[in-house]
Structure formats: C-alpha cells, structure tokens
Computed example of a mutant assay.
Amino acid sequence: MNTVTDVLEAARLRIAEDVEPNRFLDVLEQGRMPKERLKRLAGELYHLVRSDRRSFALLASRFPDAPAGDLFLAMAQGEAQALELLGGFATAVGLTTEDLRTYEPQPLAQAYPAYLARAALSGTASDTALALLANVAQSTGTYTRVADALVARHGIEERALEHFRYFADTPQALLDQATATLADGLAGGDDPVAAVRCAWTVHALEAAFWNCLAHGLDTG
C-alpha cells in the first residue's frame, strides 16, 4: 500500500465500514429543527472553522515547500473566507458577531477540530491530504443537503447560505494539490497506515459533530 491509488482506496474502504445516519440532517430535512439548534449550528461552526484555519496555517508553516505548502496555505485561506461567509447565516438565525464570539462550544462537537489540530501539530502532510481526499464526497454532499434543507424546509434565504455552499464545492485544483501532496509524502516515507487512520478518524469525528447537534432531539 504505497501508491496514492492504493492508500486512497484503503481509506475509502475503512470509511465505508463505519457510516452512520446523520441524525441532525434527518431532522433538518424533515423541517423539524428548532431555531435554537440552528443558532447552535452557527456557534459550533464558528469555533470549528477558526480552529481549522489555525491548523492549516500550522501545517503550511511545518511543510512550506510545494506541493504541501501550497495546499495548506490555500486551505487556511479558504477557512478564513468560510468564516467571513458564516456571518450571513448567523444573522439569519438571529446571532450577532459578539454572540458567535461568546458562544460556549460543546466538547464533543469540537472533537473533530481538536483532532485536526493534533494532526497539524504532530502528523504528516500525507495524513491531512488523505483525509481531505477520502472524505470530500461525503463532506460536500452533507453541506449541500444542509443548505438545501435550510432553504426548502426552514425558510432561510439563499444569500445567507454562502458558507454552506462554499464547503459544498471543493475546487478540483485543491484536490489535485492534495493528491500531489499525498504522493510526495508517500515517496518521502510517510506511513500509509497512519494516513488511513487519520482519514477514518476525521470521518468519524465529522459524523460526531453533526450528531452532537442532534442530541436530545426527537429523531424518529
């Protein structure tokens, strides 16, 4: 398992063994999501994206040479843009910038960005590159469904959903950089088993983020 194709396939197979229903999305698409939970979504995303921006900036500083440096710098800049776009959704659900800053995040909802911060501090470039490649289809699909449900079932105007639409569309150029970063890392001796483990863990913790937001709701 030392080629990009082999490692990516191994990660996708590992992830496919551990797919759970997205309870938050189920309730959202049924039109039963309380507005309080939409406020919570905005608050959790605010803290998540701020953390991820720092994590990708750290990765860019640890691996400054191309292709990894270009990838992680672009991802840090993307998180900064997504953070700015989140303001439209926050306003739509009745939150101010100060509300976002003072929101108390739920520990389990923030397990994903905490893990990414650890990977940024001590992992390899291959770890995060593979996590992006292996999880991009599910992640973009989730953000698309969230945005669509917010419009169709909860009356949120499309102009307030730029944050979700942004994460629903990962540019091919970024995926190409991730593929090049993974290939470069594997050629340099990065552990493919550890990279697969990272991709699988990111998948599991992203699922935990959404399901934490559904905790206590009637999801039947």
Rank of each mutant, 00 (worst) to 15 (best):
R37P: 02
R37V: 07
R37Q: 14
R37H: 12
R37T: 06
R37I: 11
L38Q: 11
K39D: 01
K39E: 12
K39A: 08
R40E: 11
R40C: 08
R40Q: 15
L41E: 09
L41M: 10
L41Q: 07
A42Q: 00
A42G: 05
A42D: 02
E44L: 00
E44S: 02
E44Y: 11
E44C: 05
L45A: 09
Y46E: 01
Y46N: 09
Y46H: 14
H47R: 11
H47G: 02
H47C: 07
L48D: 07
L48F: 07
V49A: 00
V49W: 00
S51Q: 12
S51A: 13
S51T: 12
D52H: 08
D52S: 11
D52V: 06
R53K: 10
R53V: 10
R53S: 06
R54Y: 12
R54P: 01
R54Q: 10
R54I: 06
R54M: 09
S55A: 15
S55M: 04
F56H: 10
F56Y: 15
F56L: 10
F56Q: 06
A57N: 10
A57I: 02
A57W: 03
A57E: 11
L58R: 14
L58W: 05
L58D: 08
L58P: 02
L59W: 06
L59P: 03
L59H: 03
L59K: 05
A60Q: 10
A60K: 00
S61D: 11
R62T: 07
R62W: 00
R62C: 05
R62L: 07
F63S: 05
F63I: 06
P64I: 06
P64D: 10
D65T: 15
A66T: 07
A66Q: 09
P67A: 08
A68V: 11
A68T: 05
A68K: 01
A68C: 04
G69L: 08
G69H: 02
G69T: 07
D70G: 07
D70R: 15
D70E: 15
D70T: 15
D70S: 14
D70M: 13
D70Y: 08
L71W: 00
L71G: 04
F72S: 05
F72A: 11
F72W: 13
F72Q: 09
F72D: 00
L73E: 12
L73I: 09
L73K: 12
L73N: 09
A74P: 02
A74Y: 10
A74E: 13
M75P: 06
A76G: 13
A76N: 08
A76K: 10
Q77S: 14
E79K: 12
E79S: 09
E79A: 13
E79M: 10
E79V: 02
E79T: 11
A80G: 15
A80T: 07
A80C: 09
A80I: 10
A80V: 06
A80Y: 01
A80W: 00
A80N: 14
Q81P: 04
A82W: 06
A82L: 01
L83E: 14
L83D: 13
L83C: 05
L83N: 11
E84V: 14
E84T: 13
E84D: 15
L85S: 04
L85W: 04
L85F: 05
L86G: 01
L86E: 11
L86C: 00
L86W: 01
G87D: 08
G87F: 13
G87Q: 13
G88H: 09
G88N: 13
F89D: 00
F89N: 04
A90D: 02
A90M: 03
A90R: 00
A90Q: 01
A90L: 05
A90E: 04
